[in-house]
C-alpha cells in the first residue's frame, strides 16, 4: 500500500541552526502516529511542513504519493480537501457562528444546497457530541473543550483520509481531555482515517498511538510501537517515558506494559 505520508531527506534550518538533518518518516494508511520530542526538537515544524504551511530547506514531503513542493495549485487544492487539521487553539473563525464554521468547507465546494449543508453540520455536531442548540453561538461564547470538539467537527466535515492533530488535549482539564481522546479513538475506529499528531500529554499518547516517532538530535531516533519505545536507550526517551509521569501513564494503559528495569 502506498504510504499516506512520506518524508524523505528533510533538512530544516533556521539561519545556521539545523533543526532536522536528513529526516525520514513514513506513515501507512489507517495508522495513528505521534510525534514526540523535547522542546525545540522541531515536532510542530515537521507537522507544519507536512501540512505545507512551511517549506524545508531540502528534502521532500509526499502526501498520498504526491510531492507537496512543486505541485500545481490545483493538485494542492485537491490534496488539501483530503485532509483535516485540528489546530492547538481550535482556530475557529471568530467572525462566524459554530454552524457557519463547520459549513464553510462544504460551502466552498459549491456543490451542495443549504439544506443539505445544514443537515451535514447537524450530523457532524452529533458525531462530536455537541448539542444542536449551540449551532448558532459564536466561538467567543464557547468553552475550550467545546471549541476543540467543534474544530474537530470542522476538520472532519469533508470526510478526510488524513487528520493532523496539533496538541489535541492541550488546555483541557483531565476529564475533558480523556473524553476527547475517547472521541477521537471512536471516530478513528469508525471512519479509519490516518492520524498524525503532536502531543506532550502522555495519557493521550498512550491511549491513541499505534506508533511513536521520537525526535531528538535533529532526526527521528526511534519510530515504532509503544512497547518498544520504552526500551529505547536515549536520555530524552528514558526521561520522557520512564520518568514518574511516564510510568504512571504507561501503567494506566489499556494493556499495561512490562517495563524494563531501569
Amino acid at each position: 500500500m502506498t504510504p499516506v505520508i512520506e518524508v524523505e531527506g528533510l533538512w530544516t534550518m533556521f539561519g545556521d541552526h539545523v533543526v532536522h538533518r536528513d529526516l525520514t518518516l513514513g506513515v501507512a494508511p489507517g495508522e495513528v502516529i505521534s510525534l514526540v520530542g523535547g522542546s525545540g526538537s522541531g515536532k510542530t515544524t515537521l507537522l507544519r511542513q507536512m501540512m505545507g504551511l512551511e517549506h524545508p530547506a531540502r528534502g521532500t514531503v509526499k502526501i498520498f504519493g504526491i510531492s507537496l513542493y512543486g505541485a500545481s495549485a490545483e493538485t494542492l487544492r485537491k490534496i488539501r480537501k483530503r485532509w483535516g487539521v485540528l489546530f492547538q487553539q481550535g482556530a475557529l473563525y471568530s467572525a462566524l457562528s459554530v454552524h457557519d464554521n463547520i459549513a464553510l468547507p462544504l460551502r466552498e465546494l459549491r456543490a451542495f444546497d443549504e439544506n443539505f449543508i445544514r443537515d451535514m453540520v447537524m450530523l457532524k455536531l452529533d458525531m462530536v457530541d455537541i448539542e444542536r442548540r449551540h449551532a448558532g453561538k459564536m466561538p467567543a461564547d464557547l468553552s475550550g473543550g467545546m471549541v476543540k470538539r467543534i474544530a474537530l467537527a470542522r476538520a472532519l466535515v469533508l470526510e478526510p483520509e488524513l487528520l493532523f492533530l496539533d496538541e489535541p488535549t492541550a488546555g483541557l482539564d483531565p476529564d475533558r481531555s480523556e473524553s476527547f481522546v475517547k472521541l477521537i479513538q471512536e471516530l478513528h475506529g469508525k471512519l479509519g482515517f490516518t492520524v498524525v499528531m503532536v502531543t506532550h500529554d502522555l495519557d493521550t499518547l498512550v491511549s491513541l498511538s499505534d506508533k511513536i516517532a521520537v525526535l531528538a538530535e535533529q532526526r527521528v531516533i526511534f519510530y515504532g510501537p509503544l512497547e518498544q519505545v520504552v526500551k529505547v536507550d536515549h536520555p530524552f526517551a528514558r526521561n520522557f517515558f520512564l520518568g514518574e509521569r511516564g510510568l504512571r501513564a504507561l501503567s494506566a494503559a489499556r494493556e499495561p506494559l512490562v517495563l524494563p528495569v531501569v
Partner: peptide, 8 residues
C-alpha cells in the same frame, strides 16, 4: 460511501 454520500 461516506457521510456526504449517505446523507445525499
Amino acid at each position: 460511501l461516506d457521510h456526504i454520500g449517505a446523507l445525499l
